[in-house]
């Protein structure tokens, strides 16, 4: 087996030491720091990005909350305004209505007073005319003359009670 032939042991060991030490030194001092720097840089960028994303997210949430709050307050205000104007309208409506009612009833009262007066006048006139007619009739039919008072009394009697 060539492996057990010591002829080239020294040469192999020598070249192993040379190549291995060169590789160790080269990787240690040059290559590995490069890789670790790249990895570190990437890790930093990633964690920075994550941090920024988190910050932005919180900001967005805050803005969202603010919008929600403003929306709610706007809605509240709007419903308040609607309520107020409703109330105002109702009040105005009721006021106007009662005013019209008052006017109307006043007019009705006035008119009924006029009507009542007219009725009284007419009644008076009618009874006077009845009196005149009665006087005329009695004067034509008999010589007995009645004074106004007696006639009036008999008319009232005839009007109120049944004729006996």
């Amino acid at each position: 087996m060539p492996q057990l032939n010591p002829e080239f042991f020294v040469s192999q060991l020598f070249w192993l030491v040379v190549t291995f030490s060169f590789l160790l030194f080269f990787l240690w001092k040059i290559s590995l720091p490069r890789i670790s720097k790249v990895l570190e840089k990437r890790q930093n960028i990633i964690s920075n990005d994550i941090e920024t994303a988190k910050k932005l997210q919180t900001e967005a949430e805050q803005i969202q909350n603010e919008i929600d709050r403003q929306l709610t307050s706007a809605r509240d205000q709007a419903s308040n305004i609607i309520k107020k104007s409703n109330l105002k309208l109702k009040n105005t409506f009721a006021k106007e209505l009662s005013k019209i009612d008052n006017d109307l009833s006043k007019k009705i009262d006035e008119t009924s007073v006029i009507i009542e007066n007219n009725k009284k006048d007419s009644l008076n006139k009618i009874s006077n005319q009845i009196l005149e007619i009665t006087k005329l009739i009695t004067a034509k039919l008999s010589s007995v003359s009645f004074n106004d008072k007696e006639i009036k009394a008999s008319i009232t009697k005839a009007q109120s009670g049944p004729i006996n």
Binding site: F8, V10, S11, W15, T19, R34, V38
Partner: peptide
């Protein structure tokens, strides 16, 4: 001492050259 360059040492040198070139130039752009 016999420090001859043999096929074994050539193989070692090739190995080291491959590793150094690969590890160094693959991250060259960082």
């Amino acid at each position: 001492l016999d420090l001859s360059v043999t096929n074994s040492s050539i193989s070692m040198i090739i190995t080291v050259v491959i590793i150094t070139l690969f590890i160094t130039f693959s991250v060259n752009t960082r």
